[in-house]
Design a binder for these strands. Structure first.
Lengths: 414, 414
DNA sequence: TCTGTTCGTCAACTTGCCGAACGAATGGAG
DNA sequence: CTCCATTCGTTCGGCAAGTTGACGAACAGA
């Protein structure tokens, strides 16, 4: 089943591939030093990789004494990935190469007809991106899509995809996979956003941090130990249900969640009206506060208190290094100071709080990160080949009777 | 650096070892089928393992047609691990074999002198356990200790180890490692408890669940994706600081935490007094409630409300499959119904809530699990040998300007 | 006792990697 | 301009590990 030769060679090939990717242009001798392999083995494998176009020469390294070595680097155009941020109004998509470089980006309005029309739109945009990048469709290795809603990990259906008409009914995963013919990943847009910040934003140096999006709704993405955490139903980070702000016992507040009821867009407007303001949109409230409107300022400070309280709850559970605020309301820098202020009054040692570095592009960047990572895993990852079972502790007391053993399993499972 | 031969053989040896451990008694042919290796290779490696006493024959499998094969099983006595639950008043310790079997257990009072005396006590108990199990000290592969307090991941010092006099000042990790001469793991007792439940208690089938201990203090252990989560400062699960019950803005409530101030032992007693009860201990309150004391019943129902609110907050952040209640107060079954009742009023789809299956032995069992797992990792794990770097996406800069269609990045990153 | 079947081991062959030695390129010294 | 130390890259013989194939050994049932 697993001939020995191929396996070892595969491991070594992947090792070298990893080194070439992460070390940038590198000579064969350097590879031999770092991998511990011998020069000849390295040469042979590199030759293969170059033949398969995974790797390309990048010139010679001159300057030292002795013969100039040839340097090799990863050929980023050996594959492409596509990331999509599918919102209720806008569809953002981008194509990038396997080196992590972003090549082209398309932004357009989401098809208001919803349902299959949106699926069709995603396909169309994807193929246009591939054309823009002058890439054959076969070279597209992975597509990742972030969209509002909770992904049901079992069925692959996005529940609560309220922003797009009749989108929740479709088996989006299957539909799109079938139509694109490419591995497809679907996830919550907040999860994508947190991964975006982890890859290229504020969370680059943090292995434990959260992204809190406050806008029309409220959501949170959690990165713990450098991985996204989804919880058992994919509902981790659904802090809209936190018992904060509104009465958590009122059933009316449990549909969208007490915290969301109070702190999200509608709640903010309602509190502004209650404080004596006119019934306007969220941006107008911020503008009014900037103009010195006392009611608006009070409401925004209160918003800071609510968010601070939520962060306090999150920090008590997760102990993140950093909290990134995003979304239509959360990304307003005016909120930063009240949030920090209130948080400091709730906690003795609060986590750092910052406004998203990527802004509305966070979910898109995150989708790219997911697609890229998946492609790399599939191509060069350790997943497929390790024959090792996870080393979990043996379960319970060995209840095997001593002495002769019962008959072996007849079917010869496998 | 890494000779090829040994590496491949090591991988295969570990593969077979894993199979033998997890499959129980198993014949060589079966091993060959499952591992994909040939019969000869399996024979050779099994011979070696048997010579090194890692594996032993366990009789022949009779009943089938043809020659009876010899079955092999993991020799659990090839190594031993020790788990310790070091509390403020009691010290529980146990020794088990590498098969997960618990062999002997010792419970005694913690040395009230604290500090080095306790360290000495741990050493003494450990060696006595090894003697009881008739194991040479060299065969003890790992010791894990759970104790109250927050482990500082950097220094290895237990901060806030308030229950044991002058214990927080010591570099316990280093002291004990030096004195025992064995790999030693130190962690929070609540973390140990959650791992105990994960191994042999209620959380066996859950990859995402939490253990909430309510007693003198309040703490929570978090298992997400089958791993314990500590957060960036090891303070994950410190739900004592949740803004629940007491005024979270009062600095006096921030030392121990608002939630702990309200819901832990002292808070429970205080609320009972405020409700008209006498100043008694926690067990007396439970007894009074059972006797029909209205004030006590009210206070306990209120305790259920507080805990329910905390679970609501935790569930909103982590989405656990299960919440296990433990600790002096939390493990009282009388609380289960009020907690569930209130939780159902807070949330539409609350997680399951149960009382700890292991009770006060949870931290001890968890320590055993940690020690066992560490020993297995060290012996048969994949950690030491994989030459693969983690396949993270390469960090390319792609700061494309916004716009309907962004220009391709000009610099040709990297 | 015979026979079909399965287990376990011995031999011959293949793969992959390494050490050592050798030709090739390069920059500097004379 | 030539020579040379130095480093790069390749070729050759050898070793370690695994696989296929064949054969003796044990066992159940006829």
């Amino acid at each position: 089943m697993t001939p020995a030769g191929p396996l070892l060679r595969q491991v070594n090939t992947q090792t070298l591939m990893q080194l070439i990717i992460h070390t940038g242009p590198v000579t064969r001798v350097e590879l031999a030093r770092r991998s511990g392999l011998s020069k000849q083995t390295v040469s042979e494998i590199v030759r293969q990789l170059q033949g398969a176009d995974w790797v390309r020469e990048t010139g010679r390294v001159r300057g030292g004494v002795g013969r100039s070595p040839v340097a090799y680097e990863f050929n980023p155009r050996s594959g492409f990935v596509i990331g999509v941020d599918l919102g209720g109004t806008k569809l953002r998509a981008a194509i990038g190469d396997l080196g992590g470089g972003l090549l082209h980006e398309i932004v357009e309005s989401t098809d208001p007809l919803g349902g299959r029309h949106v699926i069709e739109q995603v396909c169309s945009v994807s193929r246009r991106l591939a054309d823009l990048a002058d890439a054959s469709w076969d070279a597209v290795l992975c597509v990742a899509i972030g969209t509002p809603g909770v992904l049901n990990p079992q069925t692959g259906v996005m529940d609560f995809a309220v922003n797009i008409p009749s989108f929740g009914d479709l088996r989006v995963q299957d539909e799109l996979t079938g139509r694109l013919g490419v591995p497809l990943l679907l996830d919550n847009d907040v999860n994508m956003a947190v991964l975006g910040e982890h890859w290229q934003g504020l969370g680059q140096d943090s292995s434990d941090f959260v992204f809190i999006a406050v806008g029309t709704g409220i959501g949170m993405g959690v990165v713990a130990d450098d991985e996204i955490r989804r919880g058992c139903n994919g509902a981790a980070g659904e802090i809209c249900y936190l018992p904060i702000g509104a009465d958590p016992l009122d059933r009316a507040n449990q549909v969208k969640g007490a915290f969301e009821e109070a702190a999200a867009g509608a709640g903010l407007v309602r509190r502004y009206v209650e404080a004596g303001g006119r019934e306007v949109g969220v941006p107008e409230i911020f503008a009014a506060a900037a103009d010195g409107d006392a009611a608006a300022q009070l409401v925004l400070d209160d918003e800071g208190r609510l968010i601070g309280q939520a962060i306090c709850a999150v920090a008590g559970v997760l102990d993140p290094e950093l909290v990134v605020l995003g979304g239509g309301i959360g990304s307003r820098t005016e909120l930063l100071e009240p949030v920090r202020n209130w948080l400091g009054r709730f906690m003795l040692q609060p986590p750092e709080v910052h406004t998203s570095a990527l802004g509305h592009r966070a979910p898109l960047v995150g989708s790219m990160a997911v697609a890229l990572r998946t492609a790399h895993q599939d191509l060069f990852g350790a997943t497929a080949l390790t024959p090792l079972v996870l080393p979990t502790p043996p379960s319970g007391t060995a209840d095997a009777a001593d002495g002769d053993v019962a008959a072996p399993n007849p079917g010869g499972t496998r």
